[in-house]
Simulated assay, not measured.
Amino acid sequence: MRFSVFTASTPEWTPAEAVRKLAEQGYDGVEWRVTDQDDAPQPGFWAGNRATWPLTGLEADLPEIARLTREAGLEFSGIGGYARSFERDDVARLLAATATLGAGRVRVTMPLLRTGHYRDLFEGARKDLEWATALAGEHGVTVLVELHHETIAASASSALRLVDGLDPAAIGVIHDLGNLVIEGHEDHRAAFELLGPYLQHVHVKNVAWQPVATADDGTVTWAHDWATLRAGQADVGAYLRALREAGYDGWVTLEDFSTAVPLEERTRDNLAYVRALAGA
């Protein structure tokens, strides 16, 4: 397995700082966040993230993205795009940019459940993915569908329904350990077997559910929050063993959104932790 970091989780670093620090710590690659984001008084994961490349004007930034990545000695594990499957112009731009960079693969996000009736959303996304897969094939890159809570593809089973029958050389699935703690968990071994050739990328983060309120009748309300790799509910070691037993030897991208540990210490410790687990 090769390890990278998704720069959504490194908001305090500029792109130059991100690749320098990740290379120094021993990472194999970087997964760049690409989206037009809101400004923020302080750098945050989703707004004001300094390690994010804007989608607007992306083409002009491609030489700098390539230079920074390669001069640091890192590979592209992929491009973390945020274009929805139905935003075809933006998807086309991301596919072309991924091909230009030689980054191999790019995430295309799925419709949110709250935006319509599930069957309608699913049918529309399937048509969009058929179109995107054909275009990805022309570019020689791969579209990635991430297992993500509150979307139409929260589980391996639902993602397989979306991509089944499409060319696995041009479309695949990101299996995301942390997201599945929130919604969509299935037995990992079964999920890997189910996805087969569509299992093409992995994201690792962790999540914990916490009680946040108790009603007068004793009913407890729970909420999920990001946790360190060690402290969350997912067993990272068991997950990596299951991946290895399934024959997966691709990218494992870390995206730790916990904040209990300072960023540079967090990324360094996470790499040591997963490498030790993967080799155990």
Rank of each mutant, 00 (worst) to 15 (best):
R2Y: 13
S4H: 14
V5K: 00
F6L: 15
T10E: 02
T10W: 09
T14G: 10
A16P: 00
E17W: 13
Q25R: 14
Y27D: 15
V30C: 15
R33C: 12
D39A: 15
Q42F: 15
Q42I: 15
G48S: 09
G48D: 12
R50V: 14
A51K: 15
P54A: 11
T56K: 14
E59S: 09
A60V: 04
P63G: 10
P63N: 06
G78P: 03
G78C: 06
I79A: 11
G81K: 08
F86T: 10
R88I: 14
D90A: 13
A92E: 15
R93K: 06
R93N: 07
A99Y: 00
A103E: 01
V106S: 01
V106T: 13
V106N: 01
V108Q: 00
L112T: 12
R114K: 10
R114H: 06
R114G: 01
R114I: 02
T115H: 07
D120Q: 05
L121N: 01
F122V: 13
F122M: 08
G124Q: 07
G124T: 08
A125M: 05
D128F: 03
D128H: 05
L129A: 03
L129P: 14
A134P: 13
A136H: 10
A136S: 05
G137T: 01
H139A: 04
H139M: 05
V141E: 11
V143E: 05
V145D: 01
E146W: 04
H148F: 06
A153E: 08
A154V: 08
A156T: 10
L160W: 12
L162A: 10
G165M: 09
L166I: 12
L166P: 02
P168V: 14
A170E: 00
H175V: 15
G178W: 13
N179F: 12
L180I: 05
V181P: 08
G184F: 09
G184H: 10
H185N: 07
A191F: 13
A191S: 13
L194N: 10
L199T: 15
V202H: 14
K205R: 09
V207E: 03
W209F: 12
A213M: 04
A215G: 14
D216N: 14
D217Y: 10
T221W: 07
T221H: 12
W222I: 03
D225Q: 09
D225S: 07
D225P: 04
W226S: 02
A227K: 04
A227V: 00
L229D: 08
A231N: 04
G232P: 00
G232V: 00
Q233M: 08
L240R: 07
L243C: 06
L243Q: 06
L243V: 11
R244I: 02
G247W: 04
G250N: 05
W251Y: 02
L254G: 03
E255P: 01
E255L: 02
F257N: 05
F257W: 02
A260I: 00
V261T: 09
L263H: 04
E264T: 08
E265A: 09
E265M: 00
R268S: 09
N270W: 06
L271G: 12
L271A: 09
A272F: 08
R275L: 06
A278Q: 05
